[in-house]
């Protein structure tokens, strides 16, 4: 009997030790915050699939395209499937590339591909575009500004959690699109290019 009691006690201590060990392992494995960004961007696709299986609710967003009349950006409404921020932001940029449905003008070269888009927890959206975006022959200051700010303003306007936008080309930082606008720093939205 006495032996049994002490055996139980020891088992309990052993159990407590194991739990502590388990907690330590968990903390160690999941503690690193920086890694999180990667996980989020990977799970984006999975979330979307899950969303589609259940029920697709649509969400209205505002896109900014160029007007041939005044050279300013004008709004155009669009419906996109409601999802997580990465997928929604992705849909916005893809719609911008696809171009306007009303009388406005497309800004981004039509053969450009959106390679990757993810939003960090502190509100910086990385938009990674294919190299075709740099291969336009209309890249004077105005042409470049229109491309950059149609993306930056459309994202910042629709998503409160996006504070800044960084443009990447083929996964890399690039100095400019065509020799003018500096891409090396993230952009804050500039709504002065939008018609009032």
């Amino acid at each position: 009997m006495k032996k049994n009691k002490s055996k139980n006690k020891k088992l309990r201590i052993l159990l407590v030790l194991l739990v502590i060990l388990a907690v330590l392992v968990m903390v160690f494995l999941f503690g690193s915050r920086k890694e999180k960004i990667k996980h989020e961007s990977h799970s984006a696709g999975a979330d979307q699939v899950a969303g589609k299986k259940a029920e697709i609710t649509m969400k209205q967003v505002t896109l900014f395209f160029l007007s041939d009349n005044d050279g300013l950006l004008h709004p155009e409404e669009r419906e996109i499937p409601e999802s997580d921020i990465n997928s929604e932001a992705r849909a916005v940029v893809e719609e911008l590339i696809r171009g306007p449905q009303t009388g406005l003008m497309a800004v981004i070269p039509g053969n450009t591909r959106l390679r990757q888009l993810f939003v960090t927890t502190d509100g910086l959206a990385y938009v990674d575009l294919s190299r075709q975006v740099t291969e336009a022959n209309f890249y004077g200051s105005s042409g470049e500004m229109a491309v950059v700010y149609s993306i930056v303003d459309s994202l910042a306007y629709n998503f409160k959690s996006i504070k800044k936008v960084s443009l990447l080309i083929e996964g890399n930082e690039r100095e400019t699109l065509g020799g003018h606008v500096d891409l090396s720093n993230p952009f804050l939205p500039d709504y002065s290019l939008i018609a009032r």
């Binding site: 160029l66 050279g71 497309a106 022959n137 209309f138 004077g140 200051s141 105005s142 042409g143």
Partner: peptide
């Protein structure tokens, strides 16, 4: 010194 470019053919003027 630059010369401007735009998708809009009718964009004109100096900036």
């Amino acid at each position: 010194i630059h010369a401007n470019g735009s998708r809009r053919n009718n964009a004109r003027g100096s900036e």
